[in-house]
């Protein structure tokens, strides 16, 4: 005998409570973080214009919106938005992951991967790696705790100082590949989760995701490579 339907006619969709809702949160916060990553990259690339430009850009971030906004205020707004986005992204990821792990208490002898990608399968641990990387990154360039010769305000110097050590550069490189994979699957997933698949979108979703991810990885890696190659000094 069939047991009665458990949730009887909850005709109101409860976006946040549902697993789909969690995915929507991940998609939206993911897109916010992606926009940050892109903006950050564009800023970073100014390093190729020389110390003066680069340091001016860093200072410019603090005086954004001046004179209307006090120094550093918009930067803090951005930081708060990012922190909330990161928090929500991770929270949703944990809930979704726990649901999925709980959904298969007895595993398979083997489950062959057919359609999925390396990027998709490494989302969870990739996310953890990215968190660790971000912590290191902040300690390196924002707080200067792990930077070999941190000079507050001289961002250009700090970057060169850090990347001159090849293990640091290599670590950054690896982290950027992980970010690229995360962005690739994340962006294409966001299209899917937000239901953006109408023609012609459906045809270029994967391509766009791949291109964005590739450019991000290449752009970020270009800096340590340039430092090690002596182009930036």
């Amino acid at each position: 005998m069939t047991p009665p339907v458990a949730a009887h006619a909850p005709a109101t969709p409860r976006l946040v409570r549902s697993l789909i809702g969690k995915k929507v949160i991940m998609a939206i916060t993911g897109v916010i973080l992606l926009l940050f990553v892109i903006a950050h990259l564009l800023g970073n690339l100014k390093v190729f214009q020389g110390a003066e430009h680069f340091n001016a850009y860093a200072e410019g971030l603090r005086t954004l919106g001046a004179p209307f906004f006090p120094r550093g205020s918009l930067l803090w707004v951005a930081r708060v938005v990012l922190l909330v986005a990161v928090g929500a992204h991770i929270w949703a990821a944990i809930v979704v992951t726990r649901a999925s792990w709980g959904a298969r208490p007895v595993g398979y002898h083997a489950l062959e991967a057919v359609e999925t990608t390396y990027a998709a399968r490494t989302m969870r641990w990739g996310g953890v790696i990215i968190v660790l990387y971000v912590i290191y990154h902040l300690l390196d360039f924002t707080f200067g705790r792990v930077n070999p010769s941190f000079v507050p305000g001289d961002v250009y110097h700090n970057v060169i100082a850090s990347f001159r050590a090849w293990p640091v550069s290599a670590g950054y490189g690896v982290a950027m590949v992980v970010v690229g994979l995360h962005v690739y699957h994340g962006l294409w997933s966001a299209f899917q989760t937000l239901g953006l698949n109408r023609p012609p979108t459906v045809r270029w979703r994967r391509g766009v995701a791949g291109m964005v991810a590739g450019l991000i990885t290449a752009g970020y890696i270009a800096i340590p490579v340039a430092v090690l190659a002596g182009v930036l000094r």
Binding site: A7, L19, A103, T116
Partner: peptide
């Protein structure tokens, strides 16, 4: 319809879609 189906799906203890395509 979509609200009810999704609510029941979650109540049954299925996992979430992470777009593997399997």
């Amino acid at each position: 319809r979509v609200a009810n189906l999704v609510a029941q799906m979650d109540a049954e203890g299925f996992g979430a879609c992470t777009n593997h395509g399997e």
